[in-house]
Design a protein around this nucleic acid. Structure first.
Length: 953
RNA sequence: GCUCGGGUGGCGGAACAGGUAGACGCGCGGGACUUAAAAUCCCGUUUCCCUAAAGGAAGUACGGGUUCGAUUCCCGUCUCGAGCACCA
C-alpha cells in the first residue's frame, strides 16, 4: 500500500458505502433512535461554497458518533426546491424553473457526495415534487378546516365551532370563549341568526376563525418582485431578497392564523434546548406585552376611544390621547372647524411609505383634532390628537399619552407644548419636564388612591379598579402578525382552493395533489393577475404558497418519505418523534423556525403527531466569511496604472501626504495632481494571494484584473495586498469551493480543517493557509500504521501503561468534546495523541484500533482505509465507540506548581496521598522557595490537593 | 435606544467547577537531509530587561473590587458583532 493518497481512497469508500447502504436508517429497530437534521438547503445556482458544509460536517460527526454508540440514526438530506431565485432566472431566460432547479440539485448532490456525508439518501425529499407537495396542500386543507378554540388553547376541527355557533351564537368581541382576547370584525348574532344565515354569510363569519383564511389586509407589496412578502422577508423597508422597495397595499390575501398560537409558541421555548439568543429573537418577535384596555368617553359624543396600555398605573399622568392617522374614529370626532387641517395631516401621513416613516423617526408630527376625551377617574378634559408615531396595526391604534413616563409621548408633548405630569417618583432627582422617567420602578405620586404604592402593585390595583368600574379590562397584546400565505408567483405549491360565487371552497383531500400547471410565461397577466391565471382552464386560487410552506414540515416527511397514503405513517412518527439535533444558521430565527413550530403544534392539536415541538436541540453554526484580497491601484494616466504595495498605501492613507516614492513616479510619467482619494481598492481573485499578504505578481499579470502597462511599486521584498473580511460572494472574487479543497487535500482534511477553524457557533473568515497543518497531521497519522517503506507496521504485542494512558485521555476528551459540540478541540486532541504516540513509536493494535474508531466520525475515509488495512472486513463506522477507563488515567504523583504570592516559582513532585505537613516541610526546605521566602514571615500556606501550592509571605 | 454575544501572541484559537495563561495549528527564525528545491524531520517563537546560560518584570480591551490566588466572579467604561427598533 502506498503512502496517504486521499483522492483514490476517498472515492473508493464513498462508492462502497453507497453500494452497501451503510447509512440507511430503519423505521423498525430495537435500538434507541436519534434524529440529526441539517436545515433544508435551497439549491441555488451558485452551488456550495466552503461555508455551507460547516454545519453539515458538524451534524455528520454527531450522527456518526451516535451510530458508534449504538443508536439508530436518522440523518437525511433533501431540497427546499420552490422559491424566488429559480423563478427570477426563469423570467430572464425563459427556462422552466423545474429544469434549472433540477440542475442545481444535481450540482449540490455532486458537491455533497465528495465530502463523505453519511446521509440516508433513500429518504431524500424535494418540495417541488407533487408527491411531496400533495401533503403540504393536505396540511393547508387541515388548517383551513380548523379553528383555534381559546378556552381549550388548541386547534380543533371547524365542525366544533359550527356546533357552538348553531347552538349558542356569537356574543361579539367580549365573547372570550370564541375570540380569546382578539378583536373580530363581525357583529354579535344569536344561534337563531346563525341558522338563518345564507351559506355565503356563514362562510364570511367562518373566515374570521379558520386557521387558513382569506381576508383583506395591508400587505407588504414588492412591485419589483411582483409579490407580497411576509414581515420577516422585509428588512428596513426593502425586500430581503434583492433589496427592492416594499410598500403597504391593501389586498385580499390568504393568511395563516399563527397569532392564535402566540402564547403557546412562547411557552414552548421554555422546554427546548436552543441558544438563548434565538429564543430571545423569537420572544421579541412574538412581542408579548401585558397591560389593560381602557375606554375614554369623548365629550359631546357617544363614541368611546379604546386605548391599550402596559402602564395603567400612570393613568393619572394622562394629559392627552393620540390616535393613529388611520384610526376609524378620527373623522367622527373631529369638529367641523378642524376637519380641514386634520384631513390634510392624515393624507400626508398616509402617503408616506413605510420606509420614510421608519427612517424619519425623529421628526415629530401631529395635529389637534379639536375634540376632548373625559378622563375616567378625574373627569378632566383631555385633548385628542392625531400623530403618526402611533401605529394603526398595534393595540387599538390609540394611546393614552403619559408624557411624564413615556419618552415618545414626552417628545410629542414638548413639541406641541402639552402638559407633562409626574406620577411616578424614582430614586434621586429627576426633572420630568426635561426628560421622561420610563423606568418601571418607583413610588406613585399625584395619583389619588395609588399614592405611595410601588409601580408593580399600582398596576395590579389599577387594573382591578378599571375592571370593577367597567372602564376596560386586563389584556395581553402580541406584536406577532398573522402570516400572509399567498404569493403572486408561479414557482410554488398551488393553494387547493377554488371559488364559487366569489366564495372560497376547499378541494377535498382525494382531489390532491393539485398540480402546478404549465404557463406560457412566468409573468403576471396583462391585468395584473398572478402567473397561474395564464394556465388554461385554471379555476383555482392563482396565488401560490410561500417558500416556507414546504419547509414547515419536511422533517416529518423524512420519517416516511415515500408514503403515498399519508404525510407520514403514524408508526414512523411515533418511533422518530422529533428532531434530536438540528443544525443551521440563525437567519431563520423568525421565519422557518417559528413556522415549523407553529405547524407542529397545529398537527399535534389534531392528534396527528406525538409531540408539539419539532426541534429538541438547536445549534446555530456561525457564518464562514470570505477573506478578500485587495490590491491598491492608482490609475495615473489613461494607459498607465500604478499598483501600490499595501504598506505604502496604508502610510499614504494615514498621513494624506504624497509620499516620496510616489512623487518620483509621478514626475517620471508627467502626471498631474494626485490625492489619496484617487487610490482604488480593487478586489482580486483570492487565488492570487500567496500566503497571507503576498501578491503573486506573475499570476496577477495573467489575470483579467490586470491592466496593461501596470507598474508595481513596493518597499519590501514582496508586493503586499490588503485583506478584507466580508461575505463570501462571486462579486468579491473570494469564494472558495469545497470541490477544489477536496481535490487538493481530500475530504477528510476539509472536514477536519473546517472544524479546526474555531468554535462551531462563531463566525470566522475562511483562510486556506492553515489547512496544510491538518493535511500534515493526517499524513503523520497514516505513518503510525505504515513505515517509510509503506509497509504496515501494526503490532499485536500488549500496550504499555503510558500508551494506554494516551489513548484513554483521548477517548475521554473526544467524547466530552463531541457531546459539547467543541469539535475544534477534538481535532487538537487527535493531533496531540498522534504526536505522543509517534514519539513513543507506538504501533500497537490495542491502541490504534480504538483510536481509529474515535476519529472515524471526523475523518471517515482515512479511518476506514486503515481499519480494513489492519484486517477488518466490516466497516469502522459499524464499530463500537470505545469506553474510557479511568484506571489508565490515575496518577500516583503530581508535579505541583509552587507559587509565592500567586506567582509560580517552581514545581515539586509529590505523591497524591501525601499529607499536608509533609508537603509543607518539603516545600519550605526547597532551595528556590527559600530564596523567595528568606527574611519574610510566612503568613499562610495553601495546599490544594492535586492542584497547587501557594505561599503567602 | 433596548436585548444578546464577543474582545487572550504576528494569525486561527486553547485554558472542563477561580488554581502553572498562550494547548493545538498557521506564520516566522534556525538547523538536519539534498547538487539544489519540494516533501519530511528536529529546535526556537507573548512582550520587555539582562543575556552564553541562568534570572527578572509586565501581561488575557480599559479602570476598580472580592480572593492566598481572577482570562474565569462582581461594579463601571470603551469597543466590535448580531437581533429588535415609534409595539404604548
Amino acid at each position: 500500500m502506498a503512502s496517504y493518497n486521499p483522492a483514490s481512497l476517498e472515492k473508493k469508500w464513498q462508492q462502497t458505502w453507497a453500494e452497501k447502504g451503510l447509512y440507511r436508517a430503519e423505521n423498525e429497530s430495537d435500538k434507541p433512535k436519534f434524529y440529526v437534521l441539517d436545515m433544508f438547503p435551497y439549491p441555488s445556482g451558485a452551488g456550495l461554497h466552503v461555508g455551507h458544509p460547516l454545519g453539515y460536517i458538524a451534524s455528520d460527526i454527531y450522527a456518526r458518533y451516535k451510530r458508534l454508540q449504538g443508536f439508530n440514526v436518522l440523518h437525511p438530506m433533501g431540497y427546499d426546491a420552490f422559491g424566488l431565485p429559480a423563478e427570477q432566472y426563469a423570467i430572464q431566460t425563459g427556462q422552466h424553473p423545474a429544469i434549472t432547479t433540477e440542475e442545481n440539485i444535481k450540482r449540490y448532490r455532486e458537491q455533497l457526495d465528495k465530502i463523505g456525508f453519511s446521509f440516508d439518501w433513500d429518504r431524500q425529499v424535494k418540495t417541488c415534487d407533487a408527491d411531496y407537495y400533495h401533503w403540504t396542500q393536505w396540511i393547508f386543507l387541515k388548517l383551513y378546516d380548523a379553528w383555534f378554540n381559546p378556552s381549550k388553547q388548541k386547534a380543533e376541527p371547524i365542525s366544533e365551532l359550527l356546533n357552538i355557533l348553531s347552538t349558542q351564537g356569537y356574543a361579539g368581541n367580549s365573547d372570550d370563549a370564541l375570540t380569546g382576547s382578539f378583536e373580530l370584525d363581525i357583529p354579535a348574532f344569536s344561534a337563531a341568526d346563525w341558522n338563518s344565515f345564507t351559506e355565503a354569510q356563514q362562510e364570511e363569519v367562518l373566515l374570521n376563525f379558520r386557521l387558513a383564511y382569506l381576508s383583506e389586509t395591508y400587505v407588504n407589496w414588492c412591485p419589483a418582485l411582483g409579490t407580497v412578502l411576509a414581515n420577516e422577508e422585509v428588512k428596513d423597508g426593502v425586500s430581503e431578497r434583492g433589496g427592492h422597495p416594499v410598500e403597504r397595499k391593501k389586498m385580499k390575501q390568504w393568511s395563516l392564523r399563527i397569532t392564535a398560537y402566540s402564547e403557546r409558541l412562547l411557552e414552548g421555548l421554555n422546554r427546548i434546548d436552543w441558544s438563548e439568543s434565538i429564543k430571545d429573537t423569537q420572544r421579541n418577535w412574538i412581542g408579548k406585552s401585558e397591560g389593560c384596555s381602557i375606554f375614554f368617553d369623548v365629550e359631546g359624543s357617544n363614541e368611546k376611544i379604546e386605548v391599550f396600555t402596559t402602564r395603567p398605573d400612570t393613568l393619572f399622568g394622562v394629559s392627552f390621547l393620540t390616535l393613529a392617522p388611520e384610526h376609524s374614529l378620527v373623522s367622527d370626532i373631529t369638529p367641523a372647524e378642524r376637519r380641514m387641517v386634520v384631513n390634510e395631516y392624515i393624507n400626508k401621513a398616509k402617503n408616506r411609505t413605510e420606509r420614510e416613516r421608519m427612517s424619519d423617526v425623529k421628526h415629530i408630527s401631529g395635529e389637534f383634532t379639536g375634540a376632548y376625551a373625559i378622563h375616567p377617574f378625574t373627569g378632566k378634559k383631555v385633548p385628542i390628537w392625531v400623530g403618526d408615531y402611533v401605529l394603526a396595526g398595534y393595540g387599538t391604534g390609540a394611546v393614552m399619552a403619559v408624557p411624564g413616563h413615556d419618552s415618545r409621548d414626552h417628545a410629542f408633548a414638548k413639541h406641541f407644548g402639552l402638559e407633562i405630569i409626574q406620577v411616578v417618583k424614582g430614586q434621586g432627582e429627576h426633572d420630568i419636564q426635561a426628560e421622561s422617567y420610563d423606568a418601571k420602578d418607583g413610588e406613585l405620586i399625584n395619583s389619588d388612591f395609588l399614592n405611595g404604592m410601588q409601580v408593580k402593585a399600582a398596576v395590579k390595583k389599577m387594573i382591578g379598579e378599571i375592571e370593577a368600574k367597567g372602564l376596560g379590562k386586563g389584556k395581553t397584546n402580541y406584536r406577532l402578525r398573522d402570516a400572509i400565505f399567498g404569493r403572486q408567483r408561479y414557482w410554488g405549491e398551488p393553494i387547493p382552493i377554488r371559488y364559487e360565487n366569489g366564495l372560497p371552497k376547499a378541494l377535498t383531500t382525494d382531489q390532491l395533489p393539485l398540480e402546478l400547471p404549465e404557463v406560457d410565461k412566468f409573468l403576471p397577466t396583462e391585468d395584473g393577475e398572478p402567473p397561474l391565471a395564464r394556465a388554461k382552464d385554471w379555476k383555482f386560487e392563482t396565488t401560490t404558497m410561500p417558500g416556507w410552506a414546504g419547509s414547515s414540515w419536511y422533517f416529518l416527511r423524512y420519517m416516511d418519505p415515500q408514503n403515498p397514503g399519508a404525510f407520514a405513517d403514524r408508526k414512523a412518527l411515533d418511533y422518530w418523534q422529533d428532531v434530536d439535533l438540528y443544525i443551521g444558521g440563525s437567519e431563520h430565527a423568525t421565519g422557518h423556525l417559528l413556522y415549523a413550530r407553529f405547524w407542529m403544534k397545529f398537527l399535534f392539536d389534531l392528534g396527528l403527531v406525538p409531540v408539539d415541538e419539532p426541534f429538541k436541540k438547536l445549534i446555530n453554526q456561525g457564518m464562514i466569511q470570505g477573506y478578500s484580497a485587495v490590491v491598491n491601484k492608482l490609475p495615473l494616466l489613461e494607459k498607465y496604472t500604478l499598483y501600490i504595495s499595501n504598506e505604502l498605501a496604508a502610510e499614504w492613507k494615514k498621513t494624506d501626504v504624497i509620499p516620496d516614492f510616489l512623487k518620483a513616479e509621478l514626475a517620471k510619467h508627467g502626471a498631474g495632481e494626485v490625492s489619496v482619494n484617487h487610490l482604488i481598492q480593487e478586489r482580486i481573485d483570492i487565488r492570487l494571494a500567496k500566503g497571507e499578504f503576498d501578491l503573486d505578481i506573475e499570476g496577477f499579470k495573467q489575470s483579467f484584473h490586470y491592466e496593461a502597462n501596470g507598474e508595481f511599486i513596493q518597499s519590501g521584498k514582496t508586493f503586499l495586498l490588503a485583506r478584507e473580511v466580508e461575505k463570501m460572494s462571486k462579486r468579491w472574487y473570494n469564494v472558495v469551493n469545497p470541490d477544489d479543497i477536496c481535490e487538493e487535500y481530500g475530504a477528510d482534511t476539509l472536514r477536519m480543517y473546517e472544524m479546526f477553524l474555531g468554535p462551531l457557533e462563531m463566525s470566522k473568515p475562511w483562510n486556506t493557509n492553515g489547512i496544510e497543518g491538518v493535511y500534515r497531521f493526517l499524513g503523520k497519522f497514516w505513518k503510525l500504521f505504515y513505515d517509510e517503506n509503506d509497509q504496515l507496521k501494526i503490532q499485536d504485542s500488549p500496550a504499555e501503561k503510558a500508551e494506554l494512558k494516551i489513548l484513554h485521555k483521548a477517548i475521554k476528551k473526544v467524547k466530552e468534546d463531541i457531546e459539547s459540540f467543541s469539535f475544534n478541540t477534538s481535532i487538537s486532541t487527535f493531533m496531540i495523541t498522534c504526536n505522543e504516540l509517534g514519539n513513543l513509536k507506538c504501533a500497537k493494535r490495542e491502541i490504534l484500533e480504538p483510536l481509529l474508531v474515535i476519529m472515524a466520525p471526523f475523518a471517515p475515509h482515512i479511518t476506514e482505509e486503515l481499519w480494513q488495512a489492519i484486517g477488518h472486513s466490516t466497516s469502522v463506522h459499524q464499530a463500537t465507540f470505545p469506553e474510557f477507563k479511568e484506571e489508565y488515567l490515575v496518577e500516583n504523583s503530581y508535579s505541583y506548581p509552587v507559587s509565592i504570592n500567586g506567582k509560580t516559582r517552581t514545581q515539586i513532585e509529590f505523591a497524591l496521598d501525601v499529607s499536608e505537613e509533609e508537603v509543607k516541610a518539603t516545600v519550605l526546605a526547597d532551595e528556590t522557595v527559600q530564596k523567595w521566602v528568606e527574611g519574610k514571615e510566612l503568613r499562610k500556606f495553601i495546599f490544594v490537593k492535586g492542584r497547587i501550592i501557594n505561599l503567602v509571605v
